[in-house]
Design a protein around this nucleic acid. Structure first.
Lengths: 222, 222
DNA sequence: ACTTTATTTTAGTCAAGACTAAATTTACCT
DNA sequence: AGGTAAATTTAGTCTTGACTAAAATAAAGT
């Protein structure tokens, strides 16, 4: 059995490699920051994972997952996203609470548990925040959506995915009435990285900071 | 936060103190055996728990939980039994599979998770194998049932609780058609600790070894 | 009461995975 | 190209919770 720690490291490396923000090189310090440990600790673990042939390690340069490592990362991510969706659908958890709970549960569930909730949810392919859920074979359909912050004025778009990095931000989005599938229209964009004004589902206009809009992924209409 | 290990030790000590088999004195070796560790390891942990004022430790004699330790034990047991029932009721787990899964999950769930499944289950007081579920305040209603092995010939009784120590035995009981609430009648008891013959729910007679009957707790009728 | 045996405790190791402080490497700037 | 700052790695420590082997204690038999 693999330790929780190892699963977490691999999961985060995968996310960094395939994330929408910085798909350059996964450095020790970036990994350390995401794991909430010091760089020295990250180096130790990296050496161990390289030893186990789970990743490619170029000292002072960075890491890249090998096939075996990616497989474990995707299994862990699958667990996480299935659990998040289950908590949300079956237990009524809110958008911002699922991540923390899933973070601990993902390491504790068996294959049987995974299969049962997968079935119960109807073999879903999209998670609670719009993320793709890897299938049992570790295949995943990476998506590419536009950021709401990049949408032109006047354009309408459907909310497809939100970043789950910040629970407070998720709660805020939720309070604004944003959900997966919500249709928004950009009415106004203030200059100099100013906020944008949105029409959410034909309701009254709302103003949203760019920072938040940057973490909302949409599909423009027409 | 308390470690999984600590929670497990306290839980097992509680069960040994209140178990139906040997409520004498909880010894180091008994605890070690149930935890699957060596006696030396158990001694170490006992000293640590005594240091934390979670239990009373008389070297060479044994241990007894103090109030704080019992509270933690009961919380852990509550988690375990709620999860078992949830797995059984909501996810269709079989009698013999719930324990192993709950064993890992009990340390991973939050208070919110506990509350949500508690509510979903209708605030149950009896677990999947008939055990009492401690309430949120750590109160528990200890039961005293007769063992099926002690029931007189001709007597009828209702199955109230089964031991969950051995998954294979649980599977066997299940295959025999035994469930909580099942009515059985003892038709025959072979001498010299021989097997007993049962009538299960007015079906055809079945023969059951004493060992198994010893782990089935019943409430005699009339 | 003394000896043998079983149980328990002590002493010393080990592995995981974190940390700090120091040394090293890379990168950047003029 | 040389010098400095930032990033990374190395070296050494710590904690948790296991282990083995040896010592100490308790229990039991004659």
């Amino acid at each position: 059995m693999l330790s929780q720690s190892i699963e977490d490291y691999l999961k985060i490396i995968y996310k960094l490699q395939h994330g929408s923000d910085a798909p350059t090189q996964v450095t020790t310090s970036l990994l350390a920051e995401r794991m909430g440990v010091t760089a020295a600790s990250a180096t130790n673990m990296i050496k161990k994972l390289a030893e186990m042939n789970l990743l490619e390690y170029a000292p002072y340069k960075g890491v890249a997952l090998r096939e075996a490592g990616e497989k474990i990362a995707l299994e862990t991510i699958r667990h996480h996203r299935l659990i998040e969706l289950y908590l949300s659908e079956a237990l009524g958890y809110s958008w911002d609470a699922v991540d923390a709970e899933a973070e601990r549960l993902e390491h504790a569930i068996s294959e049987e548990f995974e299969e049962r909730i997968d079935k119960m949810l109807g073999y879903p392919t999209i998670g609670a925040h719009g993320e793709p859920i890897p299938n049992k074979n570790g295949q995943i359909e990476e998506q590419t959506y536009a950021r709401l912050s990049d949408i032109e004025r006047g354009q309408r778009a459907v909310v497809k995915r939100v970043s789950d990095r910040d629970a407070a931000m998720l709660r805020y989005m939720n309070d604004m009435g944003l959900r997966l599938g919500t249709v928004v229209k950009v009415c106004e964009k203030a200059p100099f990285k100013g906020p944008l004004t949105l029409l959410i589902e034909e309701d009254q206009p709302r103003t949203l900071g760019l920072e938040v809009a940057h973490h909302i992924f949409v599909d423009p209409i027409r």
